[in-house]
Every structure is written in structure tokens, then in C-alpha cells.
Nucleic acid binder design. Structure first.
Lengths: 258, 258
DNA sequence: CATATTGACGTTAAATTCACATCGCTATAT
DNA sequence: ATATAGCGATGTGAATTTAACGTCAATATG
């Protein structure tokens, strides 16, 4: 288990060093079976470190080191993946999808690689580097002032850019939920997200259950504004019923053992 | 897929070396069918590396292939560095600097890391990843539709973003120069660059001498619109004098042996 | 008109996935 | 202490999918 993680890290470093490597080279270099290499790079690709081609793997275009070592940090990855997979139900090929700068939305982006063709819009740098140079995905980056804390572009430039666009569906997250209100910590981020809400026909909110009964500094929006609020198991039945009575389109996604 | 990539690279090198090659020669030289050669060069032409004639292929006449990211030749690296170093004379700490998506401007960005504090604006993905998370550099990314050929964001979203900003100095490049006119291959790129011109107080153009006496599809601007036009040694004296008489603020930068 | 180019289709070779077997380790019960 | 059940990582070979290329007919070009 630890050994596999280390092996993956070795593979990632090797690929990052060479930029692009053939699968057979990896097989030879690491002296394991082709199947094992596939399993490793599948996982690395899912984490957004590498990209799988046919017969070869490449590194993600930008943010190399960062993403190379980010895959260790993976907080709540299983829950994020679960939510992300469920979010795919709201996306169809050919649509315009807007993603915010949350790590949950980034998880959705990795899955969107299989829902082509698609136009994707985001202000997240991590998501941007996932989606550049993907065939059959038109990618539009929302510019703005770079903010390292969020690894995203925000500010008035970003808000104005959003206002010029329209998406079929917005997939986003929030910092905290209390009652039927979603909160965000940073006021500038709130403005960007609100602009995204206004620019999207359908709006999906992804929040793991741990975000409930907590507050953050700024009000983002009411849960009833969303066409679906997806959360993970662990929300009390009473609370779930209360939300549904208040008109929230709640959907509790069961964690799928995979 | 990887094999085809390598084959395409071979073809590109072969054509670049010979300048112009007949399709049948490629068929014979690589020992594959005519259809396959066509498919390869179609893709290379789409990437802007080659140009298709009837029965033959040539290299893209305007040096566009330099910016096709995979084929960005490192031959002119020294000249770009020379120009970039000279461009630093026009930047002071504390200013707002705008950079276009040229590889020359990207070279400037690497040097800007030592001129802090600074605010930098660009639409180049390569430059963006250079400047994120640098202390004392405020970075603003110009969003827009991602274009893999230039590895940059362009389009109307980008133009509008530029229009919201003002920079002390713009540092940019062009595809080709004829007389006192600077050209760019892609019309959408032209619009972004023109917006950048309008948004900057001072404008600096960096072009190596090989760009002179060549044309590209679209007019960018007149050389007299720039506050300085920097180029490398190799421009004829007569031509230099002619440009200066026409009012171009020309500066020929000597290559520093380093 | 001759030749170049494109498009549709089939073939082949290769890569990838899938189902299943094995191995090694750990935890737990006897 | 030993046995053994469980889990994860790995390997194997067949089945499936995908990419690359060639052929030929239809179309476009000079």
C-alpha cells in the first residue's frame, strides 16, 4: 500500500522528467508488468498528474511540480470523487459547463475528459491545466487577478469575463452550510461565484456532509437557488427532511466502493 | 498515437530542412502511402508548422511554426534572450507590465522575476505558469478561449479583459515585418494585440532580424506606433537607416557573448 | 485533362481492458 | 504460536477497443 504509493511517485517523477514516455519504456524501466503500469498511471491520471495517451503518457501541461506533489495531499478524495461522479448526471455531451475553483469541481473536470465534445469554462488554474490541449474540449479560461490561496483567477476582471458568457450548467462548491444558506469565506470569491450563478441555466452545488452546520464569513446563496444540491452520506435524516421541506432539491449520494 | 507523433516530427524536420518538398518525395522517403503522408501533413498544417501546396509542402513562411508549441525551435534562443535582456531597460520596479503570447515575451518574463515589485498581465499560459506564486509579483491573467497553437488565451473574452486594464508598458512581438509594417498570422491574435496596444502607455516591439522582409496574413500595426523597436544584429545598414528616416525608433541590440 | 486531394471503408497491428489466479502481508481467532 | 481469512498489489492471457494505414472511388484543382 505504501509501496504502491512510492512506486506511483517514482513513475510520476520519471514521466515529469522526460515529459512524455512510452508505456513500454515504463514497463522496462520499472521491471513490472504492463498491466501494473496501466493501473498506476490510471490512478495518476485520475489525480490529474499525468495524462494518458494511446501507448504513452505525458505530464499535464502546466503546474507540473505542484500537481506532482499535490496528489499526496488528497483530502477527502473519496468523497469528492463520489460527488464528482454523481455530478456527471447533470452534464451532457455538447454542452457548456462552468466550473468554479473548488477542488470538488476539479475532480469533476477529470471525469469530464470522457464526456466529449464539451465546452468548459473555469477560473481554476488546476482545472485549466487539466483541460488544455484535450481533443474535443473547447476550453475558456476566466482571467483575473491570480490568487495563490485558491490557485485561481478572481476579481473584477474575472467577474466581467463571466458576465460575457452563458453556460448550460454550473458545478460549484461552498465553504459551509447553515440552515438553507451556503457560505464562502472570501468576499471576492463570492462575487465571482454569484456571477457564475447568474450566467448559468442550471446550477449544481457539491458539498460533502462535513460542510453542514458550519458558517463562513460571507453569504453565497440560498440552497433553493440550486437545481440540485449533492452531498455525501452522513447528513442526519431529520436535517435532510428539513431541507427538503424548505424546497431544497437535495440528493444524498452513496459512497460507491470502487 | 505516439508513433504517429514521432513520424510527424520526422516529417516536419525533413521539410523544414529542405524548405520545400514534394509529396511524392515524402511518400518515397518514408515508405508509406500517399494518403498517410497527407494525413500527417494535414495535421502539421493545422498546427501551423507546414503549409500545403498542390503536390508539395513548404514550411510556414511567416515563422508561425516557432510558436507551435511542440515545434518551438530553440535555435533562436540566444537572440530571444538578448532581446529580452535589452527590453528590461524599459521596465521599472513598481510598474504594470503587459506581455503578449510570444516566446520572446516569455523570455522577458523569466528576467522580470528579478525586477520586483511588479504587476504583470499576460494571455500566455507559459508566462502565466512562470509568474504564479512569485512573491512581490501581482499577476493578472487575461482569460479567453484557449488556443493550443499559441498556448494562449485569445478571442473576444480576452479582448474585453484587456480593455478593462491599463499598463505602463507593453512588451510584444510580431510574426513578420515588411517596410514599416508589422504582421501577425492569425486575425484573432491581431485583435488581442491591438487591444494591448490601446491599453498600454509605452509599447516595445521585440523582433529578431530574421523576421524582416517577410509577411504574414494580417497587418498588426505600423512600426512608428512603438516607443521602441528592438532587433538583433544582422539588419542591413541601409534598411536600418531607412526605418529611422521613416520615424521608427529602432534599436539594434548587440548579441552579448555570455 | 491530368493529377492531386479528399472521404469512406476495410484491414491489420497494437494497446487497453477485463476476468481471474497468485502472492505476500496483517489481523484475528483458535 | 499457529492457522487462516481478508485485503491489496501484481501477473497472465483472452477479449475488446483503438489507432494507423492502405485501397479505391469520388471530387477538386491547376
Amino acid at each position: 500500500m505504501i509501496k504502491a504509493d512510492e512506486r506511483r511517485e517514482e513513475i510520476a517523477e520519471y514521466v515529469i522528467k522526460l515529459g512524455q514516455v512510452r508505456i513500454d519504456d515504463l514497463v522496462e524501466h520499472f521491471g513490472v508488468s504492463r498491466m501494473t503500469i496501466h493501473r498506476h498511471i490510471d490512478r495518476l491520471a485520475q489525480q490529474g498528474v499525468l495524462r494518458k495517451l494511446h501507448g504513452a503518457v505525458t505530464v499535464q501541461p502546466s503546474g507540473l511540480y505542484e500537481s506532482a506533489f499535490r496528489y499526496r495531499v488528497t483530502v477527502n478524495r473519496a468523497e469528492k470523487d463520489t460527488l464528482a461522479r454523481a455530478a456527471l448526471d447533470y452534464v451532457e455531451a455538447g454542452q457548456v459547463v462552468m466550473l468554479d475553483d473548488s477542488s470538488t469541481a476539479n475532480a469533476v473536470a477529470t471525469l469530464l475528459l470522457d464526456v466529449k465534445p464539451l465546452t468548459v469554462i473555469t477560473n481554476s488554474v488546476a482545472t485549466a491545466s487539466l483541460l488544455t490541449n484535450v481533443d474535443d474540449i473547447d476550453f475558456i479560461c476566466l482571467g483575473g487577478k491570480y490568487h495563490g490561496t485558491y490557485n485561481a483567477y478572481i476579481g473584477i476582471v474575472c467577474e466581467n469575463a463571466v458576465a460575457q458568457l452563458r453556460a448550460n450548467v454550473l458545478i460549484c462548491s461552498a465553504s459551509a452550510i447553515t440552515g438553507t444558506t451556503a457560505f464562502i469565506q472570501d468576499p471576492n470569491v463570492v462575487r465571482v461565484k454569484q456571477a457564475m450563478m447568474a450566467a448559468s441555466v442550471k446550477r449544481i452545488l457539491l458539498v460533502d456532509h462535513a460542510k453542514f452546520d458550519r458558517i463562513a464569513l460571507h453569504v453565497f446563496d440560498d440552497l433553493t437557488s440550486f437545481d440540485a444540491v449533492l452531498t455525501t452520506e452522513g447528513l442526519g435524516d431529520a436535517q435532510a427532511q428539513h431541507l427538503e421541506r424548505a424546497g431544497v432539491k437535495l440528493r444524498i449520494v452513496k459512497t460507491t466502493a470502487q
